[in-house]
């Protein structure tokens, strides 16, 4: 029988799946708005706009919850890569994804109660959740209340730089999501990590 450790509290799992659903909805509706008129697979513009607004507001709320809950629970510490040897550990993890994983090597840094994430994971998650997602959230809020956007920036309508940042940051989140979902299949079994995100128990 495999060894199991309890890693993820209920609030974190609830937030994770809520965030995942919202991000997927926002990605689909956001692409439908940005590429409007480009194809039949897109959500109709008016509907996409309404859903995007609602999901966007929900994301602001869930992101606020995430930040506050992380502070109160101390979970924020998990996102901080601990020196020394952070770069070395990142390199080892990258080499594992690029080579060792194909040979069936074990994970170089399996999760523990003290360190849920390997160094590479911690840095990427930190960048996404504390640098990129805030850009998406703030620019999205300006989009929602365009009266607060500057009238002009760089000689063009002030909403353009806001929209541009929103688009680029949103795209980065989508690219991260793709990789994140794929790396979710790299557990002991293909489904192990997905199961962990539901039960909270990590299987080794």
């Amino acid at each position: 029988m495999s060894h199991r450790i309890y890693l993820l509290p209920v609030w974190l799992r609830l937030w994770h799946w809520t965030n995942a659903v919202l991000m997927i909805v926002l990605a689909i509706t956001g692409a439908s708005l940005h590429f409007a008129g480009s194809g039949p697979l897109l959500v109709p513009f008016s509907l996409a706009a309404r859903i995007h607004d609602i999901a966007g507001v929900a994301l602001v709320a869930t992101y606020g919850f995430f930040v506050v809950a992380n502070i109160l629970s101390g979970n924020w510490w998990q996102y901080v890569p601990k020196p020394p040897g952070v770069l070395g550990r990142c390199w080892r993890q990258a080499v594992y994804y690029g080579w060792g994983i194909f040979k069936g090597d074990p994970h170089p840094y399996p999760p523990t109660v003290e360190a849920n994430f390997n160094a590479l994971q911690a840095i990427v998650y930190w960048l996404i959740m504390y640098a990129v997602v805030p850009v998406v959230v703030v620019t999205g809020l300006v989009f929602l209340y365009p009266q607060f956007a500057p009238a002009k920036m760089f000689g063009v309508d002030g909403l353009l730089p806001v929209a541009f940042l929103h688009y680029i940051a949103g795209s980065v989140v989508i690219l991260f999501m793709l990789a994140h979902i794929y790396l979710g299949t790299t557990g002991v079994r293909v489904t192990s990590l997905f199961k962990m995100m539901i039960t909270g128990w990590h299987e080794e």
């Binding site: 590429f35 008129g37 000689g155 309508d157 353009l160 688009y167 795209s171 793709l178």
Partner: peptide
């Protein structure tokens, strides 16, 4: 763009293509 940003209309095809290629 001098007066407004219109979602879906005022797009930059170069950026769109770059994002598409990355995707």
């Amino acid at each position: 763009l001098d007066s407004a940003y219109v979602v879906g209309a005022t797009r930059n095809p170069i950026v769109d293509r770059t994002v598409g290629v990355l995707f």
